[in-house]
Design a protein around this nucleic acid. Structure first.
Lengths: 243, 243
DNA sequence: CGCGCCATTGACTCTGGTCAACGCTAGTGG
DNA sequence: CCACTAGCGTTGACCAGAGTCAATGGCGCG
């Protein structure tokens, strides 16, 4: 069980001068793409670029939602804790992902940075007010949550029906597809999260995850490299996911 | 594995005369509550009341979304199938629930009626067009999907972390709360779905579900009655869910 | 009445969990 | 520069919770 120290947060705001949506590498990946240039400028003024150190907390379950975030760089893990310390990682957030999508009053999950991260931060209030004047953005946001919901349902299939090997294979494949989608595709798939994070995401133990990677390596499906894996036989791995 | 016959669908439209939103028992439960009276009348004209026999299919994964549904009576099961026949039930839909929330092009899940059902059916096109002129409804819909997403994340915790007993206990409790929320609370919790449905929802087998109900009955947590269960010791069952 | 479906129960199996040891690597301090 | 340590990952031996297979029971329907 890996916990983040409260107070580990180091959040350093950069100057507004450096914040130009038009130059943002994540713009095409995010809900911002719904905005034409002129509206984007207004939108831009509502937000502020924030940086997070690796291992710092973005927010915690039940925190009031004062800010929402649009990730531009790095990776976050999203999770829920049980009172007895068990943890379910419900997802990993990449550039283009929006945290606080649901516009709820308090966060239903916790989030912290796995790597150094950059995000656009909006106060919920101003973001919400902006949405009232921009149905297109709301529509885009709605699409996003809808997509997140189908992803969550896919993960329910993984957790409810799949074997350890299928879970690990589908995890690696999905992550690989997501890297590709944000233009970071490569033969080697970086895994910035720990084995414990993967285990808690897949409903397995760290030992089972480790053994499964070893087995997949022995069967020449992939190689485990420092900080990630490299797929050797994509079709065979796809086969393994059973879907 | 319980499959629904294709063609089992019996969908009988009733007359528009009988369709009056103002009298709808599900109105306060559903997204419609976002609409003032005058807009509701326009909205009303877009929809049509449809009835479904028990065991009939509403739609199937990958079907194009021609219609969206607002459930007014009965219960549906929502599920995904794997190519090899394994099934994950991702939820049960009750009055007030909206099917097709995400406004996607094709359904990501299948749905069929567990009981005789009634729903308001909208063509996606006209519903979507109506949304464009009613940001308040869109906002409400967005809230809904957001809520569905948090429920899905809660279910990920159940599937990834909980023991068989905890899963069954949380299933019964959640269902009980939902009945209460729609004004159908009672000491006896109806379970219109089969043991197989419950098993596929909880990532267990039918035998484990059955044994767990028996165990919970032996330990005086509940009684299994025809068509449902009756909780004997609510606090103890809450305790069992570990949360 | 008898058939069929669903649920329950029992006996046994097996996948994945638990517990424990070990190794590797990075960071620290002498 | 190297010894020491701490944290993470891997591996092994064993265990247990849930799955599998099979038989039985109960209820509704023809």
């Amino acid at each position: 069980m890996l916990l983040v120290m409260p107070g580990a947060q180091r959040e350093c705001q950069s100057h507004h001068a450096t914040h130009v949506c038009a130059d943002c590498s994540a713009r095409s990946l995010s809900v911002c793409s719904a905005l034409p240039l002129d509206e984007m400028e207004e939108f831009e003024r509502l937000s502020r670029v924030v940086n997070f150190d690796a291992r710092s907390a973005l927010f915690t379950e039940r925190d009031p939602v004062d800010f929402v975030y649009n990730i531009t760089q790095g990776m976050a893990r999203l999770y829920k804790l049980l009172p007895d310390g068990r943890r379910q990682v419900v997802g990993f957030a990449l550039p283009g992902d929006f945290l606080g999508l649901a516009l709820e009053d308090s966060f239903s999950i916790s989030a912290d940075a796995l790597t150094p991260m950059t995000a656009c931060r909006f106060s919920r209030k101003s973001f919400s007010a902006f949405l009232d004047t921009n149905p297109r953005l709301l529509r885009k946001l709605h699409e996003r949550v809808g997509h997140e919901l189908t992803l969550a349902q896919d993960q329910m299939v993984v957790l409810g029906q799949r074997t350890a090997e299928e879970r690990v294979a589908s995890f690696v494949l999905n992550l690989s597809r997501r890297y590709e989608a944000i233009g970071q595709g490569s033969a080697t798939i970086p895994l910035p999260m720990s084995r414990q994070d993967i285990a808690d995401y897949l409903g397995l133990t760290i030992e089972t995850v480790s053994r499964t990677f070893t087995r997949l390596a022995k069967s020449k499906h992939l190689v485990v490299v420092p900080g990630g894996v490299r797929l050797l036989n994509l079709p065979a791995v796809q086969q393994l996911t059973g879907c």
